[in-house]
Amino acid sequence: MIIRLLPVLVLLSGTIALSACQILPQRPEVALYQLPPSSIEAGPGASGATVSSLRLDRPGTSDALGSNRVLVLAADNSFEAYPGARWSAPVPVLWRDWLLDAFWRDGSIDQLSVSADGLQAQLELGGMLRAFHTEYRHGSTEALIRYDALLIDTRTRKIVASQRFDAREPAGANDAEAAVHALGVAADRLAEELIRWVVTTTP
């Protein structure tokens, strides 16, 4: 009798599993974005540069910016995430790695690394990433990046210099694709100023 019931039980379990698959909602598709590569090009040389080696640290951020969500700040100062859109890495890591590439493209500093590598360097670039989002104001959207940069002497752990960098760029539309493009343009503009500041800083 038990043997005869086995096919029935198998059929029932299969039917239940199929029903469950139909009842559970499908996961929405998520698009992963990265910042467009920097357009910074190598200059005529490192003339005037006083920094021989630099390592980049992951910046501090607020809890809201610590995730991989693509954010927009509404008029009531509340953050919202673009639906179905994510950065390819948490924002602090995304920003550090993008900056590293920008420094490589510039070519003024020969020796570059990140703190996670554990390598020696003359200076360390860290700080606080206070804004990395779009803002919706008065019917239009613009990208905003605000980075409070710190240059630290790795031997003494003393702050060599500090400066705030801001960059804004109109987004043109209120969607994830436009936000990513505008943030990329703003990042390029900010990086040009940041790199020039770093390479001419004397420890």
Results as ranks from 00 to 15, higher is better:
176 A>C: 02
74 A>D: 14
181 H>N: 14
117 D>K: 06
88 S>N: 07
151 L>T: 10
114 V>K: 04
168 R>H: 12
145 I>G: 00
150 L>C: 02
130 R>S: 15
72 V>C: 05
125 L>M: 08
103 F>I: 05
76 D>W: 01
125 L>P: 01
151 L>G: 10
118 G>C: 11
109 I>E: 04
165 F>G: 13
143 A>H: 05
80 E>S: 13
95 W>K: 06
182 A>H: 03
85 A>Q: 07
148 D>W: 01
98 W>A: 14
137 R>G: 02
107 G>L: 09
165 F>I: 05
157 R>W: 01
108 S>N: 11
187 A>E: 08
116 A>P: 00
176 A>W: 05
104 W>D: 12
83 P>H: 10
166 D>H: 07
95 W>M: 14
181 H>I: 10
176 A>K: 01
153 D>E: 07
186 A>R: 09
133 H>I: 08
72 V>I: 15
172 G>C: 06
173 A>F: 04
85 A>P: 02
90 P>F: 03
183 L>I: 12
159 I>V: 14
143 A>I: 02
181 H>Y: 08
121 A>Q: 06
163 Q>K: 15
93 V>E: 14
116 A>Y: 06
101 D>E: 15
171 A>F: 04
158 K>N: 13
72 V>K: 09
144 L>W: 08
184 G>W: 03
98 W>N: 08
86 R>M: 08
110 D>T: 11
110 D>W: 03
111 Q>Y: 14
171 A>Q: 09
147 Y>Q: 12
113 S>K: 05
102 A>K: 07
169 E>I: 04
156 T>Q: 00
158 K>G: 03
96 R>Y: 12
183 L>W: 13
91 V>P: 07
93 V>F: 05
97 D>E: 10
177 E>W: 03
174 N>A: 13
168 R>S: 14
94 L>G: 04
106 D>W: 05
155 R>W: 07
164 R>F: 01
104 W>I: 15
97 D>W: 07
134 T>H: 10
119 L>Y: 12
96 R>C: 06
73 L>G: 03
167 A>H: 02
177 E>T: 14
143 A>D: 04
